Computed example of a mutant assay.
Amino acid sequence: MRKSKHRKSRTTLFAQGNSQFPRAGHVALLASLLLFGFSSFTGAQSTPFSHDNWDALVKTCVVPTVDRHSTAAEYDCFAERRDLLNTYLNDLSGVSEAMHLGESSDQQLAFLINAYNAWTVALILDNWPDLESIRDLGSILRSPWKKPFIPLFGDTVSLDDIEHGMIREPGRFDDPRIHFAVNCASIGCPALRQEAYEGERIELQLEEQTRRFLADPSRNRFTGENLEISSIFKWYRDDFERGWRDNHSLHHFLSRYSDSLKLTDKQTSILRKGDMNLKFLDYDWRLNQSP
């Protein structure tokens, strides 16, 4: 009843007029209120989610490998800073789906990659130090990536839900370079980056990650007549052939990074034509821990 009475009094005010608020004043007042409300809304949306806590953690607890092609995680370091990690994870969980979708596409992608990597570290810590591989956390019936343990967007999801259901969702980001950013806590994985992903810099970050991974001869190399490459390219081949930046074949995608692969001009030409034999290397599932 109170709401109806209030609505009626406002209707009467604008219908009958008021000496203190002439009709022109009503228009100006409404315009100001609408402008203020719109500005406040857009201002709130323009402030991206802060990944500072995750940035501080990976800067401290992730170190380059000896050959500097990749990185290793110092899980003891992460364990000592578990409170900071938990704070970051709680902040991630506090973001609603509406808030997340209100950010730019680049900010959304950075958010999801950081979330995947941070919760992977948390999963390892829950079973640390008696762990040799993340695959040891699974079972015959369910892999560790399918375990729903992550409170996100008002639901409880798995790592697979984040990677395959959100990051790789067709028509959303469609960027195969994400495979060099998400980290599965294994030696065979691309490097866990020593900084958080940020929407404003993610194009540069993804490109650096791609080139760093492809330049690693333990994961990708030309031997004899074969280009030996990571099994990542076998498992997710479709992603690399879906037309990202007009790359419609895995050969074409790889030729884009021939300098990182250290191919000669002749080898690059053969690769671009699709005439080079590709051989997929075995994946190293050992934990990416620092020695």
Score class of each variant (00 low, 15 high):
residue 162 I to C: 04
residue 235 W to E: 08
residue 191 A to P: 02
residue 119 W to F: 15
residue 174 D to V: 05
residue 178 I to D: 05
residue 111 F to G: 04
residue 155 D to N: 11
residue 157 V to N: 08
residue 91 D to T: 07
residue 47 T to Q: 11
residue 2 R to D: 14
residue 110 A to D: 00
residue 192 L to R: 01
residue 131 L to H: 10
residue 185 A to R: 00
residue 141 L to H: 03
residue 153 F to I: 10
residue 119 W to K: 07
residue 61 C to L: 06
residue 45 Q to N: 08
residue 177 R to L: 02
residue 201 R to F: 10
residue 105 S to R: 14
residue 20 Q to W: 15
residue 134 I to W: 04
residue 242 R to I: 03
residue 64 P to F: 12
residue 78 F to P: 02
residue 190 P to T: 06
residue 137 L to K: 08
residue 46 S to Y: 10
residue 154 G to N: 10
residue 15 A to K: 10
residue 63 V to D: 05
residue 164 H to E: 14
residue 149 F to V: 14
residue 218 S to G: 09
residue 99 M to F: 14
residue 266 K to C: 02
residue 156 T to H: 10
residue 247 N to L: 05
residue 14 F to Q: 10
residue 189 C to W: 04
residue 106 D to M: 06
residue 70 S to F: 13
residue 197 Y to R: 00
residue 109 L to I: 07
residue 98 A to M: 12
residue 6 H to M: 15
residue 85 L to M: 09
residue 269 S to T: 12
residue 82 R to E: 08
residue 106 D to L: 08
residue 221 R to I: 14
residue 56 A to N: 02
residue 216 D to G: 09
residue 25 G to W: 15
residue 34 L to W: 13
residue 72 A to S: 10
residue 44 A to V: 14
residue 30 L to I: 07
residue 139 S to D: 08
residue 282 D to Q: 11
residue 260 S to L: 05
residue 144 P to C: 08
residue 248 H to C: 00
residue 278 L to E: 06
residue 119 W to L: 10
residue 106 D to G: 02
residue 14 F to A: 05
residue 282 D to V: 14
residue 84 L to S: 11
residue 144 P to V: 03
residue 65 T to F: 06
residue 71 T to N: 06
residue 223 T to D: 13
residue 78 F to R: 09
residue 38 F to K: 09
residue 127 N to H: 15
residue 189 C to I: 03
residue 2 R to A: 14
residue 31 A to F: 14
residue 197 Y to G: 00
residue 55 D to M: 00
residue 271 L to R: 00
residue 278 L to A: 06
residue 17 G to V: 11
